[in-house]
Design a binder for these strands. Structure first.
Lengths: 342, 342
DNA sequence: CATTAGCAGTAAATCGATTTAATAGTGTTA
DNA sequence: TAACACTATTAAATCGATTTACTGCTAATG
C-alpha cells in the first residue's frame, strides 16, 4: 500500500481536499466547517495514519521546518555537545536540523550556505568563519533568521550568542599569576575571529597588568593534529623558562597535552596547564588541568530560543541581541586530587 | 531580486521550460536539442546563477538527495567522528545528511524514522536500538536502502558494517592474561545488542580458556553519567581483588577513569585498564590506558560506499553484505611512557 | 504518392499540498 | 422584493520543477 494523499482522503469521504486541508490545519472554525464533518475527517485521518507530504507542503508554503546548523567541526566535543542540545530543543519544537562542518573554510561555508538556501531551511545557526560577512548579509537582506554563536562578525547586524572570551583568559591568567607563576605562555590558533582576538587580549591584559612578559605561540588552523603538535613541541622546547601555559582552544589544549605527555613534562610541577573548554580529557588528565568551562547548555538554550523567537515573530524589526555568557574557571590542583584517596 | 524559476529562464530566452529542463538535466542530446540552443541556455543559466528549486524537484522525482543518519548519541566521540566522515563523503557525492540521536530509545527511534520517511530521505544509516526490527523491515519492504552499523539486527536482512567485537575483547583479555593478570573484570552496559553480547562473549571466552573467573558488572544504559559512575564505584570497592579491568564502551571507560581517578587508584600498578574505542582521553590519561581502536575511517567509508551503491543501482536483489572490520589493540604500558623523557 | 522516420522542440499533465476566490443556499433587512 | 450578509463548502490557481505525449516540418522510402 502506497502512501495516501490528501486527494485520496477527500475522495474517500466525498468532500473536497480544500475542506480536508482546512481541517488538518486547524482552520475549521475560522472557515466555519460543520462540527460533525470535522470529526468525520479527523477520525478517518487518524485511522489511516495519514500524514501530509512535507515536501509538497514546503513547496507551497515556503517553510521547511528545517534549521541549518553550521559548526566548525562536528567531531569537536564542544560543537558536538552544542549540536546535541540544539538538536533536542529543535525536535521538540517541530524543527529538524541539517548540520555541517565548515572547517573554518570560507569557500566551503559559502557553498554550504547556498546548499542550505537551496533546501529552503527556515533559519540558520552559524559559527561563522572569517570572510563570510557578505554571504550572511545577503541572507539577512532576504529576511532569513540568522543566529551566530561562539563568535560574531563585527560588521554584521544580527543576533549572536557567545561567552565573555576576554574575561575568561584574563581570569585564567590572573589565577596563574596569583599562584605565583611568572612565565605564562599562551598557545592558540592564529585567527582574527572575535573569540580568538578576545582570548588573546584577555591574556595580554592580565600579564601587562602584572608587568609580566607575554610568551605567545600562534598556530595556523588545521584539522590535522600533526600540524598542531609540531609547533607546540618546538615552542615548549624553545621556552624552557615557561612555568605555566594557557591553551586557547580545546583542540590546541588536547594536542598540547599530547606533547606534554610525550616530552615527559610533569603537570603542574614542571608546567601548570589551563585549557579552554572543560571536558573529559581535561578532567581526567592526571593529576590536574585547570579548564575554562563554557556553559554549553546555556549557549545551546539561548541560541535556539533566540532563533525560535525570530522564526515565530514575523516582525523583523527588533534590534539584534548580543548575548554574552559567563564562563567558569574550574581549578584543579594536585593537592586536592592526591588528597582524595579511598 | 527574488529567486528565478525555470519559467523565468524559459521566458527570457523564448523557449519552453521543458527544453530548459532537458538541457539542465543533461538530456539535450537524447532529446536532440540544437547545439547552439543548448549553449545559449547554459550560458544564461550560468550567468544568472540559476539553481533549480530542490523541493519542487524532490516532489516530482521522489528523490530528496538526503541521507538520514541515526546514531546513538552525536555527542559521543565515536559517533561524532563517524558522522563527520560520513558527512564529508556524502556531500562530495551530492547528498546531504540529516542526523539525529536515538539515545538507544526504541520509541524515539520510531518517531525519528517516521520523520525521516516524511522528509523522503533517500537512504538510511542507522545504529539501531533493540526492538526496532519491525520498523526497519517496513522500510526495507518499501524498497528503502538501509545500512546498519556498529551493530546489526539478527533477523533483519540488510547490509551492515561492524567490527569484530568478539575478537576485540577476546584479544584484549588474552593480552592481559599474558601479562600475568589474574583477576580481570569487565564493566559494560547491560544490553542484548549484538555488539555488546559479542564483546561480553569475547571476554568470557578468553577467561574460560585460561580457567579464570569472570568478574562482571553490567550497567543500565543511561546518558546521565552519575548513573554510570555510581555502579562502577560500588563494583571497584567490592572487588578489591581486581588487578585489571576492561571497559566495554568508551562512555563506560571514561566514567571508569573518573572513578579510578577519584578513588586514587594507580594505573596500571593497582589496576590495569583497557577500554573500548581509542581517543584523546585514553591516549592522554597518564600513564597508560590500553585501548581497542575501531577503524573509524574504514567504517565510515564502507557504510557510505555500501549505501551509495544501493542508491545508484536500482537493482534491489543483491544479497545483503555483512562487513566485519578488524580492530587494533593499542597497547600502552608505563615502562614505555616513562622512558620517554626529553 | 502515401507513409514512415527523423528532427527540434513544446503543451500539458503531474507530484501533493495550500490558498484564493467563488458558489449555492438561507435568512435578514430596508 | 431586491440587496445584502452569513453559512458551509469547493473549484481552480499556485508553488517549481520533471516527464509524457504530442506537433509541425522535412526527407526518405516503398
Amino acid at each position: 500500500m502506497k502512501k495516501l494523499s490528501i486527494v485520496d482522503i477527500a475522495n474517500h469521504l466525498n468532500v473536497s481536499k480544500t475542506t480536508v486541508s482546512f481541517i488538518l490545519n486547524g482552520r475549521a472554525q475560522e472557515k466555519r466547517i460543520g462540527k460533525e464533518l470535522v470529526e468525520r475527517v479527523q477520525k478517518f485521518v487518524d485511522e489511516v495514519g495519514y500524514k501530509p507530504n512535507s515536501l509538497a507542503k514546503s513547496l507551497r508554503t515556503g517553510k521547511s521546518n528545517i534549521i541549518g546548523l553550521m559548526v566548525e567541526d562536528i567531531s569537536n566535543p564542544f560543537f558536538a555537545s552544542i549540536a546535541r542540545l540544539i538538536e533536542d530543543r529543535a525536535y521538540k519544537n517541530g524543527y529538524k536540523i541539517i548540520y555541517c562542518s565548515t572547517d573554518n573554510d570560507t569557500l566551503k561555508t559559502q557553498e554550504l550556505i547556498n546548499m542550505f538556501r537551496d533546501r529552503h531551511v527556515d533559519g540558520y545557526i552559524i559559527a561563522p568563519p572569517e570572510g563570510i560577512e557578505g554571504d550572511i548579509d545577503e541572507l539577512l537582506k532576504d529576511g532569513m533568521p540568522v543566529v551566530l554563536f561562539d563568535r560574531h562578525l563585527p560588521n554584521v547586524l544580527t543576533d549572536y550568542v557567545e561567552i565573555d572570551n576576554l574575561y575568561s583568559t584574563y581570569n585564567a591568567a590572573r589565577h596563574l599569576i596569583q599562584q605565583g607563576y611568572k612565565n605564562i605562555g599562551f598557545v592558540t590558533f592564529s585567527s582574527s575571529q572575535t573569540q580568538m582576538t578576545a582570548r588573546m587580549k584577555g591574556y595580554k591584559d592580565a600579564l601587562k597588568e602584572s608587568g609580566l612578559k607575554p610568551i605567545i605561540q600562534e598556530i595556523v588552523f588545521n584539522q590535522n593534529e600533526e600540524f598542531i603538535i609540531k609547533p607546540i613541541t618546538t615552542f615548549l622546547k624553545k621556552h624552557k623558562e615557561l612555568d605555566a601555559v594557557i591553551f586557547g582552544t580545546n583542540h590546541v589544549g588536547t594536542c598540547g597535552l599530547k606533547v606534554i605527555n610525550s616530552m615527559g613534562i610533569k603537570v603542574p610541577e614542571d608546567l601548570a596547564v589551563v585549557s579552554f573548554d572543560d571536558y573529559d580529557v581535561f578532567q581526567l588528565f592526571s593529576p590536574s588541568v585547570t579548564a575554562i568551562a563554557q556553559p554549553i547548555e546555556e549557549i545551546a538554550d539561548k541560541v535556539i530560543t533566540v532563533l525560535l523567537n525570530k522564526l515565530n515573530s514575523s516582525v523583523n524589526g527588533k534590534e539584534p541581541q548580543a548575548i554574552v555568557l559567563k564562563t567558569e574557571l574550574n581549578i584543579r590542583d594536585s593537592s586536592k586530587m592526591t588528597a582524595n584517596v579511598i
